[in-house]
Design a binder for these strands. Structure first.
Lengths: 229, 229
DNA sequence: TACATTAATTGCACAGCGTACAGAAATTGG
DNA sequence: CCAATTTCTGTACGCTGTGCAATTAATGTA
């Protein structure tokens, strides 16, 4: 275990570390929402002057990237490579895990979608996804395309759900969110939007576990159709 | 045609109208990016003091909602209801149109994803989508679920593409974006991420028309599998 | 024509943001 | 003990959204 203590440098000691900065950011994300993840907010959380943060990260975008990386790093990739469970189930588990974790910090998904996801954890997730899709019988090219499709689907669904969460935390439970949607759908005029009104009950449940899993299953159906044999 | 001139009100005349505010916002969105869509920027664009904008909209979020509504209103819904073309083609046309328009104003999709899409144009789009999916042979419940799936897929894909566009406008052409991705993928270590490196060429093309259409086709495959008969 | 009423616009102000720059504080090697 | 080096702080600039009071412009009424 290379204890990488870079051989005792000269100069003042750091009050905190990069990880504590990220931790403070995530703490703010969870308690006061994405808007509270500011340089000044993080600094206050750490008991530092705002500028001190720039010792650890060059700018706010870098902090956000690190936060995203950390969030992606919490993913349980082992569940993806569990060869004893069917590949579709493994993807379902990963997708549900991501959804729960990202919706617990509403606004987190917006951070993900605010820049490229090219850190090591993002790469590891992609790699694991490619392995699962190889298990599913896809050749490398098809597997790559399918992996991107899955990421789009999962992050897209989470982003749309997060979009209608209220800004003050914490987010209401799903039942309440569905009830709110149902209430708002009651105001839709049936003459102009007949099919919308007819399906209002299903539409109200768009933000549910079931819809999320249903959509993922359709995507998996489409992907399975490209597997050889 | 009820010329709804609300019978000559008292008080100072308005310098502009709501639509001009929205138009100024979209102009800024296209020329200087999403960050430039600020109250002060819009006011400057209109030759007004910042506060004057609050005559037309209660706050910035309301302006953004109006912008989103306007962007959605530009969609050609007639193409969706063209009964002489196969339903999948109609959806492909709509999806491609949305992608081109939203990526022309990078950051626009982030505005879409920053709140509920419940305006009349959003409703009209949903209604048209339900009609197409009814043509495809889905019952109302399945059609509703499928419509949400499609919206998730389309907006998700656009959001992921927009996430890696550079902030200074205009956005580079697709070929250049793919080249950038390919370049960045050259730095990925093959020992740790073998499948990623193996499929690097496909991964570089994630931001292409082909990947977008391929993903949509897999979703449509999955949806078609739920049609009766 | 004068005035009062009403609406739109402005100026000013406040609190917040990211961050650049200079200097103070702290820690170490020589 | 000093000089070098690093971190942290104080201050400041320009930007943001937006509230409040005063000003400007248009109207209906007297």
């Amino acid at each position: 275990m290379a204890q990488d203590t870079p051989p005792a440098k000269r100069g003042r000691k750091r009050a905190v570390g990069e990880d504590e900065v990220v931790a403070a950011a995530i703490r703010l994300l969870g308690t006061r929402g994405a808007d509270a993840v500011s340089i000044r907010g993080i600094a206050a959380e750490l008991g530092l002057a705002p500028n001190a943060v720039y010792t650890y990260f060059p700018d706010r975008a870098a902090v956000v990237r690190a936060v995203v990386e950390h969030l992606l790093g919490e993913t349980d990739l082992a569940a993806l490579t569990a060869h004893d469970t069917p590949w579709r189930d493994r993807i379902h588990t990963l997708a549900a895990d991501l959804r729960h974790r990202l919706l617990a910090h509403p606004g987190a998904v917006n951070l993900l979608l605010s820049g490229r996801m090219d850190g090591p954890h993002a790469l590891a997730l992609g790699e694991a996804l490619l392995a699962v899709l190889a298990d599913a019988g896809l050749d490398p090219t098809q597997a790559a395309r399918a992996s991107y499709l899955l990421i789009v689907q999962v992050l897209g669904a989470i982003a749309l759900e997060a979009a209608e969460l209220p800004s003050p935390l914490p987010p209401p439970p799903i039942a309440e969110r569905v009830a709110t949607r149902r209430e708002q759908l009651r105001g839709v005029p049936a003459d102009r939007y007949p099919r919308t009104v007819e399906a209002a009950d299903t539409i109200a449940r768009f933000v549910s576990d079931e819809q999320y899993a249903w959509g993922l299953d359709r995507v998996l159906d489409g992907i399975a159709g490209r597997a050889k044999g």
